[in-house]
């Protein structure tokens, strides 16, 4: 089948969704007066830095080995007239243990209060990557899955149903192949909509706990919410306290959670 393409008029372009990428203004490290903060999380070696570079126009060194980003990198971009600051977090497999990388990532998602957290996911290793997604969703409502490395998935003959995934997770899922710039024009509007609150997510929450357990979580979460009204992730804080996370207890004592609420 062949498709005839006429030269379109510029007016038609401006309203076409495919035109979106052109609204992107890569700001590099210029990050003054941003409107929204975007956190970039994900397992090691899923292409976070590549997505980061594609959005900011920076040339953070990327490499095909886990642990490339040792500290967090920050950059900015302008999309549709709104200015975004984007923070590239170190790759982590989970947010539950206490290595340095995981703490940097967790602290930022929790205390940095990003307007949207983009979890970059390796489409060829979906199951393991979803562990992190589910943990992020315990902390924040405002998240997007960037289903990256779709080119690899195709090469391995995998088909990922991103709509099914989006429905199960309750957040937007955008398939991309960031190395080739594929899908970034869909990622941008998703980021903008979630960050501005236009799109409300109804994230999946891990169920399954015994009734005794969920009762305890519930009880503690209510108490935390009473003490720190407006804290968006009381449930997660309750989970961490029940797990005996000393750092969260310290933050609570210092009032850092309260100050942010």
């Amino acid at each position: 089948m062949t498709v005839e393409i006429n030269t379109p008029s510029t007016e038609a372009c401006a309203i076409c969704p495919a035109h979106n990428a052109a609204h992107l203004l890569k700001l590099g490290v210029d990050m003054q007066d941003w409107d929204f903060v975007v956190a970039l999380a994900g397992n090691p070696n899923t292409g976070k830095s590549t997505v980061f570079n594609a959005l900011t126009g920076l040339r953070q060194h990327t490499g095909n080995w886990p642990g490339k980003t040792v500290a967090r990198a920050e950059g900015g971009f302008d999309y549709d007239g709104q200015r975004f600051k984007i923070v590239d977090l170190p790759g982590t497999y989970s947010l539950l243990s206490t290595t340095l990388d995981e703490e940097i990532a967790r602290d930022f998602i929790l205390f940095g209060r990003p307007d949207v957290t983009v979890v970059v996911v390796d489409a060829t290793r979906l199951e393991r990557n979803l562990n992190l997604v589910l943990q992020v969703l315990e902390i924040t409502d405002r998240a997007i899955v960037c289903l990256n490395l779709m080119d690899e998935a195709r090469r391995h003959g995998l088909q990922v149903d991103e709509r099914r995934l989006a429905r199960d997770l309750g957040i937007p899922v955008v398939p991309t192949a960031a190395r080739y710039g594929e899908g970034l024009s869909d990622l941008l509007p998703a980021i903008s909509q979630v960050a501005s609150g236009q799109l409300r997510c109804r994230p999946h929450r891990v169920r399954s706990q015994s009734s005794e357990l969920s009762g305890a979580v519930q009880q503690l979460a209510v108490q935390i919410e009473a003490v720190f009204p407006g804290l968006p992730n009381a449930r997660w804080v309750a989970l961490r306290l029940l797990d005996g996370d000393g750092r969260i207890a310290t933050e609570l004592r210092k009032g850092e959670l309260g100050a942010l609420a």
């Binding site: 979906l126 943990q135 995998l158 995934l165 997770l169 999946h204 399954s208």
Partner: peptide, 22 residues
């Protein structure tokens, strides 16, 4: 508690991934 939580997360992840991948 910790094991329960991690198990729950893994089980959910496995289920969701399984439904999405063909």
């Amino acid at each position: 508690f910790h094991e329960n939580l991690v198990e729950a997360i893994y089980a959910d992840a496995a289920r969701i991934a399984d439904r999405a991948i063909t």
